[in-house]
Simulated assay, not measured.
Amino acid sequence: MLNLGGPNNLDEVGPFLLRLFADREIIQLPAQRWLGPLIARRRTPKVQENYRAIGGSSPLLHWTTLQAEGMVRWLDQRSPATAPHRAYVAFRYASPFSADALRQMQADGVRRAVAFTQYPQFSCATTGSSLNELWRAVRQSGLEDAFTWSVLDRWPTHPGFIEAMAQSVEYALQQIPAAEREQTLLLFSAHALPLKLINRGDPYPHEIAASMHAVVQRLGTRNPFLLCYQSDVGPVRWLGPSIEQAIPRIAAQGQRSVVVVPIAFTSDHIETLGEIDLEYAELAHKVGIRHFVRAPALNDAPTFQQALAQIVCDHLQREEPYSTQYRLRCPGCTNPQCRSIVNPVAAKVAPSVGL
Rank of each mutant, 00 (worst) to 15 (best):
A192H: 06
I208D: 07
N199F: 13
G220D: 03
G201C: 11
A190N: 05
T221M: 07
K196G: 13
S211K: 04
P235Y: 12
P235H: 12
N223L: 02
L193K: 13
L226H: 14
T221H: 12
Y204K: 08
P224A: 05
L226P: 00
L193W: 12
R218L: 01
R218G: 00
V233W: 11
G234D: 12
A210D: 08
D232F: 03
V236C: 10
G234Y: 06
P194W: 15
R222Y: 01
R200Q: 14
R218E: 04
Q217I: 01
A214C: 06
L226C: 05
H206A: 06
H206C: 08
P224G: 04
V215F: 02
L227P: 00
V215I: 12
I198F: 04
N199K: 14
G201V: 13
R218M: 02
F225Q: 01
L193D: 12
G234E: 10
P205T: 06
P224S: 05
Q230Y: 14
A190H: 04
S211W: 07
V236H: 13
D202S: 10
T221F: 09
C228T: 13
G220Q: 02
T221I: 00
P205M: 09
L197H: 14
A192Q: 09
V236P: 15
A214W: 00
Y204S: 08
R218K: 14
A190Y: 04
A214T: 02
C228Y: 00
S211E: 05
I198A: 10
V215N: 03
R218Y: 07
S231D: 06
L227Y: 00
M212H: 02
A192W: 08
P205Y: 09
L219M: 04
S231Y: 12
V215D: 05
G201I: 12
V233T: 15
E207I: 03
L219K: 03
T221S: 11
L226N: 02
V233I: 13
L193M: 15
C228D: 08
V216R: 07
F225I: 00
V215W: 02
S189D: 06
Q230G: 09
P205V: 06
P194F: 13
G220Y: 01
S189A: 14
Q217H: 09
D232R: 14
Y204R: 09
V216F: 01
V233F: 14
P235L: 09
G201E: 11
D202W: 08
G201M: 14
G234A: 13
M212A: 07
S231F: 12
Q230F: 15
A209H: 03
L219C: 04
A209W: 01
Y204T: 05
P203M: 10
A214D: 07
S211A: 15
F225N: 05
